[in-house]
Simulated assay, not measured.
Amino acid sequence: MSVKAAERTSLILHFGMLIAPIKDLAFRSAPATGPDYRLLEAKLYPDLQAWVKESQQFARFGDYAFNIEVNDIIGIAKGIVRQTGHLAKHFPDNDQNRQESLQRYVLKCEKDIIDAIDKIPIEWESQLLAAGTPFSTYLKIADAINAARTRVHYFDRYLDPDFFPLYLRSLARDVEVRLVTTRGSVNFGVQAISNVASLAAKEFGDFRLIEVSPRDMHDRNLRIDQKVFHLGTSTNDAGSKPTNFAVADSSNSANLILDDVIANGTVVH
């Protein structure tokens, strides 16, 4: 759906892998020593350089680069790696204070890196995805969903339980989620997904499963923030046959139509 959406997902994933040893240092039960911090800084340097190159690629569109934005992104990553060495110097004899300082820094960087990455614009392109490509199609839809900043709304009368592990597993828990479907049967719709939806509702900050009448469900639409996409088939069949994953009308009036579908439905969870 968008090369940049896929690159964004990869960049965030690799940032998590880059700082995983730092998080381990910050949140382990027994605080590490100063030399442990300095050693980790040295060990992470090659991975940091690789991530910097990946960031520069993400920020480049043809011959143009978003240099201001990518410098902010890179600065956050370099900052957290270098902070391990700085803390070893500033707290030479106090392992507990050093660890608490690193904890605060890690939590701040995790938020700041998403905000910085999201300043790079992502352009969406409609695609007709060929039959026999279910995995490639899944990746494209997942990339689009994981790019969400504020909300993911999915409208599908045949929604089934596989949607949850496939598309919501990695979604930030503060993103608003609305799943709109029909009563269905034991295989799809509210009857099929109610149990897993009740679990999701306990974990996501703003989650609703909405039941609507079949007459109100004509198309399969995916709304990500203010952008609306049309799927030619349900996500459980996407890629098994030709799938049109297209940017749809995302005007205010089009969004209001989807809002009305939600408002006229019944909240199940």
Rank of each mutant, 00 (worst) to 15 (best):
I68C: 02
K89Q: 15
L39M: 09
Q96T: 13
K89T: 09
K78G: 00
Y64A: 13
F91H: 14
Q99S: 05
A88I: 11
N67Q: 06
E100C: 10
Y105N: 09
S55Q: 04
S101G: 00
I68E: 05
Q96A: 11
L44T: 04
A65E: 11
S55K: 00
N94D: 15
A77M: 12
D112M: 11
Y64H: 08
I80D: 01
Q83K: 06
D47T: 10
C109A: 15
D72G: 07
G85Y: 03
R104N: 14
K53N: 12
K78E: 15
L39G: 06
D93T: 04
Y105K: 03
G79Q: 07
L102S: 00
F61D: 14
D47M: 10
Q49Y: 03
Q99E: 07
W51L: 08
I113F: 10
F58N: 07
K111Y: 04
N67K: 02
I74H: 05
L102H: 02
K111W: 05
R104A: 14
F66W: 13
Q49W: 00
Q99W: 13
S55H: 06
G85M: 11
Y64F: 13
F66V: 08
D115F: 12
P46V: 10
A50F: 08
W51S: 01
F58I: 06
L39A: 06
N67L: 09
N97A: 15
G62K: 14
A42L: 13
D93N: 15
T84V: 10
E54T: 05
A65Y: 01
R82V: 00
G62P: 03
C109S: 15
L39I: 06
Q83T: 07
P92N: 11
Q83Y: 14
R82N: 11
F66P: 01
I74G: 04
D47H: 11
I114E: 13
R82Q: 01
T84I: 01
